[in-house]
Simulated scan of single mutants.
Amino acid sequence: MEEKVFERDWRFMLDAVLRINSVESVELLEKEALECLCLLIPCTQGTIFVAEESGGTIPHYGRPYAVGMEALFFDEFLNGDYNSDPIFTGTNIPCQTETFRDGDLLPEEYRVQTRLYREIYAKQGIHYALRSYLVHNARMVGNISLFNSKEAGEFSSKDVFIQTTLAPHIALKLGTLLALEDPQRSLRTAQQEKAIDGFGLTGREREIVLMIASDVDDREIADTLCISMGTLKKHIYNAYKKMRVNNRVQLYSLVNVHE
């Protein structure tokens, strides 16, 4: 190990486990988990996503949260089908929580040529990544990643150890919270999803439409998705146009057809 894990590091990790296990919602868990990790592991940016069910073997991600440097390309990542990128496919889908540095999977000369690196990371000054696949009961429940600029340097073995130690606690709590989410909410969301099929919405537009249909106001939507109000208004305009509605009331009536 490059650096020694001191007694204070263990105290901070124990405090992080307590904070992680004390939250009562997925959104609060994302915030606490990421802030705890970034306190223990200095980084340029941190992101966390919740894995959504999909028909394929590779999950799709949603419900993003970020700390540190502004995440400029959440929309592009969510809509860009980057799951097939070598940075992700090189790991396969684990049956238990795993933590790794991208540099341990792909030599730098190959990694910097990947589509994900060129189109997302390089454009916002990200070079190194330390990520965890979060698995609960053999099912992927999320992905948490810390990033560094080239100037900040690669993550150390100590950083890997700390995230490896905390990631299973995050996965356990996230899986538990997801399992406890209101079954009626899941049913209602499934009905809403069915109602908006066929309109040709992008993944981000679908996410926003479902939040509008659940009476979430614009400011909360923008804050939750980590996008600007201007970007949100563009998505809403495009969704309204595709769905041939003019306002929230019409959208609500169209999407909540079973209520």
Rank of each mutant, 00 (worst) to 15 (best):
E181C: 03
D102Y: 05
G230C: 14
L105P: 06
Q191K: 11
Y61A: 01
D159C: 10
E24I: 13
N92F: 07
D182K: 09
I170P: 00
L28T: 06
L40I: 03
L251Y: 14
N83E: 06
L14Y: 07
V257P: 12
L210W: 01
T189V: 12
V160L: 15
K173T: 04
K233S: 14
E181S: 03
G175V: 03
Y128D: 02
A213T: 06
Q124T: 01
C43W: 08
D217Q: 11
E32M: 08
E98A: 09
L106W: 03
A16Q: 04
E259S: 10
K123S: 13
Y82L: 00
S186N: 09
F88Y: 06
Q163Y: 04
L130S: 11
E205C: 15
L201W: 15
E3H: 05
R19G: 02
E52T: 05
E119A: 08
I58A: 05
R248L: 07
L254G: 10
Y240D: 01
R11H: 04
L172T: 15
F147P: 05
E32Q: 07
S145H: 03
E220I: 15
S22L: 11
V209L: 03
V112Y: 06
V17N: 01
Y117S: 01
M211H: 04
E76M: 07
R118K: 02
M69F: 13
Q163L: 15
M140N: 11
Y240H: 07
I93V: 13
I208Y: 07
I208C: 06
L78T: 07
T47A: 08
L72W: 08
W10S: 08
T164Y: 11
K242D: 10
E259F: 11
Y121W: 12
L178N: 00
Y82C: 02
K173V: 02
R19K: 15
N247P: 10
R111K: 10
M243T: 06
S214T: 03
I87G: 02
L232M: 03
Q250A: 14
M13T: 10
G80I: 01
I20N: 01
L225W: 07
L187G: 05
G103W: 01
